[in-house]
Design a protein around this nucleic acid. Structure first.
Lengths: 116, 116
DNA sequence: TTAAAACGTGGGGTGCACAACATAGTCAAG
DNA sequence: CTTGACTATGTTGTGCACCCCACGTTTTAA
């Protein structure tokens, strides 16, 4: 049983994130001490936390995480991952365009005050 | 003088964003009708709105937009733009890594339930 | 005149981070 | 064994940069 700080360290999630995930019920502590409300996590929580950490990194919303956690077979997960991958590729393309736009903007700014 | 909907259309900013920008004083309407509080924008606001739209797209925070708008010479703008460009490139690299991680995750998920 | 469309304000939602304040736990000194 | 100090944890509230919904009022078109 880990207290929140230790669990935060080993999972890479911040304490605030852990409290938040408990609040929204995607990762509830294995045990909560009644008299001081301390949250205790166990090895079962650990693997879920690692999974959630990855999903978070992949841009999953809380709602999507919920739908993943509710579906114990994780059958939905692969679809969502593929969706995220596509989304990420769109984002990359968008970022690429942004750098271009910044360059244009800088260039036009050097000559005069107009752009577009 | 444009009312908010028309101004939103021609600038590409949403009505909510316009109201928000007015609230935080980075783009205040040229005129506000006293008896109904309707916001009216003019061509002067137009150019500022276009500028802000670009900055927004480039990931400027409101604070940064404020500092840009306060500095009428726009001398600070170029530095910030270059910073943003670097940041965007870091983001692109991060997204690229994310797609790799998703691929690994999918691959490991097909074989067994482990990962890492 | 009347109903639809547009505008305003206010409040909730997002996914945490961060700070404030109150309790609790821990460890050493008295 | 108690006291003090330091650390950890809890809860609550605020901030970010908007989006969205609800409700009330005003404007506009028919």
């Amino acid at each position: 049983m880990y207290k929140i700080s230790e669990f935060a360290e080993i999972t890479g999630l911040s304490k605030e994130t852990l409290r938040y995930y408990a609040e929204v019920k995607i990762l509830e502590p294995a045990y909560i001490a009644p008299h001081n409300n301390y949250r205790y996590y166990d090895d079962g929580s650990y693997f879920l936390a690692i999974l959630l950490g990855k999903l978070r990194r992949f841009g999953f919303t809380i709602q999507e995480m919920i739908s993943v956690m509710e579906d114990e077979s994780f059958s939905h997960l692969e679809d969502l991952l593929l969706q995220k991958k596509e989304k990420i590729q769109l984002q990359m393309e968008d970022l690429r365009q942004q750098t271009e736009e910044i360059d244009e903007f800088l260039k036009s700014g050097k000559e005069d005050v107009n752009d577009d």
